[in-house]
Design a protein around this nucleic acid. Structure first.
Lengths: 165, 165
DNA sequence: CCAATCTCAGAAGTACTGAAATGG
DNA sequence: CCCATTTCAGTATTTCTGAGATTG
């Protein structure tokens, strides 16, 4: 008749003892660390509603206003899911949605001044989170890791862009 | 009135154009590649019901029979979620669940011969998937990447195990 | 008529929480 | 009485699918 004990259920920080076959498996390592990363980021970031908010705001800030479909394409997010996300950003005054005068099918999404401020705040928190995530590595190792990961992402994109010759 | 066109909704393989601020962000890279990895694995693996099935079967094969709580601890999976997973493995004849004679609170989970066979089959498919995932890297780069990722995982475990000195 | 955009509604997979029931 | 184990039910979050409505 335990009430609320549950000594250790799965506890996010609980040490795992993965089978040998998984320990060096890239897909397992990536999934494991992605989960770890998300948990760490969640503890550091206060201002973040959903995880893709930062990506959307950053994209708007860097590349300028865009239609929803355009945004979805840039970030590889589902167009439908973007609807609710932008509703929230709109409600919080971080982004604005207005009809495109040139093509009345589109909405033009713009980041607001408040959006830019929270973008900066989130960026600070996220950087702190990266430091904890990468704590086990020294500077050189961090650079190497990032280069390798980024290379994989870029190369996969390239392959997807140009179908097999 | 489009019927089923939807040229590109978000398309898993669709090239993304992430903001600069995210391009080199470890947490973004890890999440992006974890997703990519899962999609690739899904296309290669036929025999896999859920993604953690492989981990459970491998753990049973390597470390031997275990109770559910023991398994959950080893793999850092929620005990509750393990219930449904083991139900499936049981239904498919890949694992057996029997009460522990010594401690009647426990179930002893054992992998079956059929379980070992599918374990091997899944392992083959997963290896093929890793090759596609790591295609952008040469052998040396792959080894470096795996070492770095594994080092991170191990170190995070160690820190979680022994509270801050 | 076809294509693209925005929107809504719902399914599916996964992760986490709380609690009940049994037994040590 | 307290702790551990299995199980169930419910919540939350994310991702994906299908379709409707508007406009080009």
């Amino acid at each position: 008749m335990a009430k609320s004990n549950d000594s250790a259920r799965s506890a996010p920080w609980a040490p795992a003892d993965p089978p040998e076959r998984l320990r060096r498996l890239p897909s397992w390592l990536l999934n494991h660390l992605a989960g770890r990363s998300n948990r760490i980021v969640a503890t550091y970031v206060e201002h973040l509603g959903r995880r893709s908010d930062y990506a959307v705001l950053a994209s708007l800030d860097e590349t300028g206003p865009a239609s929803q479909a355009e945004l979805a394409r840039r970030l590889a997010i589902d167009r439908g899911d973007l609807v609710g996300l932008l509703n929230r950003l709109n409600d919080e005054g971080l982004a604005e949605r207005r009809p495109d005068p040139d093509d009345r099918r589109r909405n033009v999404i713009t980041i607001t001044a408040a959006g830019r401020r929270t973008l900066v705040a989130i960026g600070r928190d996220i950087q702190a989170a990266q430091d904890e995530l990468l704590a086990p590595l020294n500077a050189a190792q961090r650079a190497t890791l990032i280069d390798l990961l980024q290379h994989m992402v870029d190369h996969h994109h390239a392959e997807a862009a140009e179908p097999p010759a």
